[in-house]
Amino acid sequence: MSKTTAPEMVWKLSDFEIGRALGKGKFGNVYLAREVKSKYVVALKVMFKADLTKHKAVHQLKREIEIQSHLRHPNILRLFGYFYDDNRVYLILEYAKEGELYDKLRKMHAFDNQTAANYIYQIIDALECCHSRKVIHRDIKPENILIGANGDLKIADFGWCVHSPSSRETVCGTLDYLAPEMILRQPYNEKVDLWCLGVLTYEFLVGKPPFEHKDQLVTYKRIVNVDVQYPNEVNDLARSFINGVSLL
């Protein structure tokens, strides 16, 4: 889809054939689509301007577009371009044929050691790319990781991403994956993504996040105290890795 890299290209909805819905988000839906001339298949994320304005998410979307469009890595979902009309904003995204990693994890309950290690290696590689460009994702979790046609993972949903400053105190992301410094409203940096990596590894192997509890206050306390309780099936190497990234 070479046309998407041309800065002078102005896209419009009629440039695409729209197919089935792939998913639903807070501000709109994602559809399977095909660019008319090249027949290249993409995912088209359609968001309503009114919803973006209502939830004060316009700046967030602009930041997401600016950051994700410049990231090039096989394990990061590609943002080819965007366009808009009177009512909607459209993001032209790489199509990850196998869908959300979350769905695969729920279906299998947990991954075996080899699968988990392979997946974590790919996420590490993608995060190294992000951090080398001073980008913090801030919301790494199974729902925000997609699977491509060849089985490779793709980090997606850069809605909470930010260019890393020397310190940052904004609380964002998903409760089970929040780092202690976020909960304590302390300055933080790209290491919050590494904390998420430890939580993700645990969830891959056990089937649920390590601090999950029906009482949110208990979850907060367990995170701040780094209270990780391992089932017997988690081996020593995995425990060492999780503890290592959690205590950075």
Rank of each mutant, 00 (worst) to 15 (best):
residue 184 L to S: 03
residue 214 K to Q: 11
residue 243 N to T: 04
residue 81 G to L: 03
residue 205 L to S: 04
residue 39 K to A: 14
residue 20 R to L: 10
residue 188 Y to C: 02
residue 35 E to A: 09
residue 73 H to V: 07
residue 149 A to L: 10
residue 135 V to A: 07
residue 125 D to W: 08
residue 170 T to P: 07
residue 58 V to A: 13
residue 161 C to L: 05
residue 20 R to V: 13
residue 67 I to Y: 13
residue 70 H to V: 02
residue 14 S to F: 14
residue 159 G to R: 09
residue 236 D to Q: 13
residue 65 I to N: 04
residue 223 I to C: 03
residue 43 A to F: 01
residue 18 I to P: 05
residue 166 S to T: 07
residue 36 V to T: 06
residue 153 L to I: 09
residue 27 F to L: 00
residue 72 R to P: 01
residue 160 W to E: 14
residue 91 L to F: 02
residue 103 D to P: 01
residue 116 A to N: 05
residue 73 H to E: 02
residue 157 D to M: 00
residue 35 E to N: 10
residue 102 Y to H: 03
residue 236 D to I: 15
residue 118 N to R: 04
residue 147 I to A: 13
residue 178 L to R: 03
residue 127 L to I: 14
residue 174 T to W: 00
residue 56 K to I: 05
residue 176 D to E: 15
residue 48 F to Q: 14
residue 247 L to T: 14
residue 98 E to K: 15
residue 26 K to W: 03
residue 149 A to P: 00
residue 7 P to A: 03
residue 75 N to R: 04
residue 110 A to D: 12
residue 203 E to G: 09
residue 1 M to E: 07
residue 239 R to G: 08
residue 87 N to T: 11
residue 20 R to T: 14
residue 93 L to S: 05
residue 144 N to G: 11
residue 207 G to K: 05
residue 163 H to Q: 08
residue 87 N to W: 09
residue 101 L to H: 00
residue 33 A to C: 13
residue 198 G to F: 02
residue 64 E to V: 00
residue 92 I to E: 10
residue 65 I to M: 04
residue 52 L to I: 08
residue 22 L to P: 11
residue 29 N to A: 06
residue 189 N to W: 13
residue 129 C to F: 00
residue 208 K to F: 02
residue 218 V to G: 07
residue 78 R to C: 10
residue 130 C to P: 00
residue 217 L to S: 11
residue 177 Y to D: 13
residue 72 R to S: 09
residue 50 A to N: 13
residue 34 R to H: 05
residue 105 L to H: 07
residue 180 P to G: 05
residue 95 Y to A: 11
residue 202 Y to G: 10
residue 49 K to C: 08
residue 123 I to W: 06
residue 129 C to D: 15
residue 18 I to F: 01
residue 172 C to S: 08
residue 54 K to P: 05
residue 233 E to R: 00
residue 55 H to Q: 10
residue 95 Y to V: 15
residue 133 R to V: 05
residue 229 Q to L: 12
residue 97 K to R: 11
residue 220 Y to H: 08
residue 13 L to K: 15
residue 184 L to P: 06
residue 118 N to M: 11
residue 105 L to N: 07
residue 94 E to S: 12
residue 230 Y to E: 14
residue 14 S to Q: 14
residue 209 P to E: 10
residue 246 S to P: 03
residue 132 S to Q: 09
residue 39 K to I: 00
residue 31 Y to A: 04
residue 119 Y to G: 08
residue 145 I to A: 10
residue 88 R to P: 07
residue 150 N to C: 14
residue 37 K to F: 09
residue 56 K to W: 07
residue 119 Y to D: 08
residue 32 L to Q: 14
residue 121 Y to W: 02
residue 126 A to C: 10
residue 132 S to V: 01
residue 81 G to R: 05
residue 37 K to G: 12
